[in-house]
Amino acid sequence: MEVIFMNRLARFTDQNEELAQVWIGEEEGAWHLGWSLYEEGDREDTVWYEGSSWEELMHIYRHQLALQMSEGFRPLLQGLFHEIEDLRSRNYGGQRLQCYSELYANETLYTDLCTWRRKKAASDRKAPYFIATNRLLRMISSYVPLTMDELMQLPGVGESKATEYGQAWLELTNGVERSTVFPLDWVYSALKEEEYENWLYRQKEQKYKQELDKFKTRKQVLEGMKEGHTLEEIVNRSGLSRRELIELLEILDLEGYDTDCLLDAELAIMPEQEQEAVWNAYEELGDAFLKPVLHKVYGEEKPGGGSLEQVYEKLRMIRIRYRRHIETEQNVS
C-alpha cells in the first residue's frame, strides 16, 4: 500500500505522552484510511475506511479526526481543521461563554428550565426551540442571572426574549446559589485553553457526524434507486420518512440523477387523466405551493382513494417531473 498522507498527533495526560498518527493510503484502486496508536512501544491500528469513494473517505476522516482531537490529541503539523482561524474567530467571546456554560451548568436548574420550556411550548403551541434554545438555557443555568440587566448580558437574550420570558426565567433563578458574578469577563481567564479547544473539536465532531450521516443516507437512497427498490423499500433501508425521501428525490433530480424508474413505479396506479389534470394545474398556478394545485384538481373536499398525505406525495412526484420539464425548455430556448 502506498501512503499518500500522514500526520502525527500527541496527547499529554498525567505527565504521560500518547502518540498516534492518521494516515491515508491507496492500493489497487482502493482507498484506505486509518488510525495508529502507539503505547509503551506497541502499535494498535484501527481501519476507519476501506473502499473506492474518496468523498466518503473524507467525511469519515473529518468526523473521526475531530473525535480524537476532542479527546485531547493535537497534530504535530497544524492546519487540519483551520485551528488558528477557529480560535481567533469573530465570535470568540460568545463561544467561550457557551463553552463554559456547557461544562459548568447547574443541572438541577437546567432541568427546571427545560420543564418550564416544555410546558410553555405546549400552552403557546410553539416548538420549544422557538421559545429558547438548549444553548440559552445552559447559559442561564450556569451563570444564574438574578436581574433583568444580568439576563440581557447573555448572548441570545434580546429585548423581545427578555420582555416575553425574562420574568419567568428570573423566578426560576431566584434563590439559586451562584459562585460567579456579572459581568462575565472572568470567563476568558477562568476557562482553561485545553478545555476550550477540546470543546471546539466536540462541536466539529457533532457537525461532521451529521454530515457523515447525511452522506450515508444519500448513498443508500441512490443505491436503492439503482437496484430498482420501491419507495417503501428505500424508506425502510434509509430510515427517512416518505416525505423526507420525496424531498430528497427533488434535490437529486435537480442534480441530474435519474429518478424516472422510481417515479414511474409509484405513479403507475394513478390514472393518466388525473396526472394530466395535476400537470395542467401546475402550468396554470405555478409549482411553488401544493395546496392551490390540490384544490384545483380535487376541489375543496378531501380527495378519495387514499389519505391526504398520499395525495400530496403524488403531487410532489409529478412536480419533480414538471420542474425538470420547465428547466429543459429553458435550457433549449
Rank of each mutant, 00 (worst) to 15 (best):
F5K: 10
R8S: 06
R8P: 01
T13E: 15
Q15N: 15
W23K: 05
E26F: 06
E27K: 14
L33G: 07
E50N: 09
W54E: 09
E55H: 07
E56P: 02
I60D: 05
Y61P: 01
L65T: 13
Q68N: 07
M69G: 00
S70V: 00
R74Y: 05
L76F: 12
L80V: 07
E83S: 03
G93S: 09
Q98N: 14
Q98A: 09
Y104W: 10
L109K: 08
L109H: 11
T111D: 11
D112K: 10
D112M: 04
L113Y: 10
T115A: 14
W116E: 04
K119S: 12
K120M: 14
I131S: 10
A132N: 10
L137D: 08
R138D: 03
I140H: 11
M148D: 07
D149G: 03
L151C: 04
L154C: 06
A162M: 03
G175Q: 10
E177P: 00
L184Y: 05
Y188L: 12
A190I: 01
E193G: 12
E195S: 10
K207E: 08
D213L: 12
T217Q: 15
Q220Y: 03
V221T: 13
L222M: 15
M225Q: 07
G228Q: 06
R237T: 05
G239I: 05
L240P: 01
I251R: 15
L252D: 06
E255I: 00
Y257F: 15
D258E: 11
D258Y: 08
M270W: 11
N280R: 12
A281T: 12
Y282M: 09
E284K: 15
L285T: 11
G286K: 08
A288L: 13
L290W: 06
V293D: 06
V297R: 11
E300C: 01
P303Q: 10
Q310E: 12
Q310I: 01
E313L: 02
E313R: 14
K314V: 09
R321H: 08
Y322I: 01
S333A: 08
S333W: 11
